[in-house]
Design a protein around this nucleic acid. Structure first.
Lengths: 134, 134
DNA sequence: CTAAACCTCTGACCATGGTATAGAGTCAAG
DNA sequence: CTTGACTCTATACCATGGTCAGAGGTTTAG
């Protein structure tokens, strides 16, 4: 397979050219080889790597965490347990965020329901709660 | 009640002095009056305002949204319905975020559970999923 | 009187995940 | 040979919610 330009990778991986450059800057993609005139030369391992990043992002991993996952991927003695541990940690963070949001929802929902929606601010239970109920 | 310094407000409202300045820069707090020597002079309406901001933040409102709420608060003809509408919108956003996170959790959890935690990366279901299962 | 402790101001910096812009060089089709 | 599309580098910008640094003025206790 002949080596392709950055535009090709971007299209294949369905990201912006700038994003590929950004990932390279961030160290998520290795510095690619270059053509005579300094053009980056990629192949489909780069495309697969970007897709890996995107899938990890869909699972809520930050680029920093993805970087750690990618680092494991290239270590030959990396174990499944390390990946699992990172994923389990991340899962806990996700659950914590869910709980935070649920707490917000549970605080806000009764206020919205209690709001008559026709009065002034003085009788608004939402504003009242925000003002501290004083 | 005598007017106090920024340090006093910060302490009363349990925020950083810098944060008070930041809120003023962002327009969440009005430009305070000044002493002879240019020092900001506050009273407890400022403290109450910062506490309002903090409570709204706890409900997940961004500073931009808080600004809108505060703007309503000072309009005399603002209605409860406007507040309610903002809150209801925000509630929907919260629920959307919860669903996103739940989707992540539901994708990640079976992978973590399926992971034997003792193999190499080649047999790791998590890595496999991230690599696209190819 | 002096030194510490507080206050002021502006502007830059942190992480996050990119996007945009400018000026210059290169490549391929017509 | 020209034109348009692509690439290069470097830098700046977006929102978010602050935090920090530096240079200076003020206040207060000893």
């Amino acid at each position: 397979m002949s080596r392709k330009t950055i535009g090709w990778v971007a299209k294949e991986a369905d990201v912006n050219v700038q994003t590929v450059l950004y990932y390279e800057r961030r160290g998520l993609l290795p510095a690619p080889s270059r053509s005579m005139h300094g053009y980056r030369l990629f192949d489909d391992t780069s495309v697969r790597r970007i897709r890996f990043i995107k899938r990890a992002q869909q699972l809520g991993f930050t680029l920093k965490q993805v970087m750690a996952l990618l680092a494991l991927q290239t270590e030959q003695d990396a174990s499944c347990a390390q990946v699992s541990s990172m994923a389990a940690n991340h899962l806990q963070e996700i659950e914590a965020k869910i709980h935070d949001l649920e707490r917000m929802r549970d605080a806000l929902m009764p206020l919205v329901e209690a709001c008559p929606k026709n009065g002034t601010l003085k009788t608004c239970p939402i504003m009242d709660a925000l003002a501290g109920g004083e």
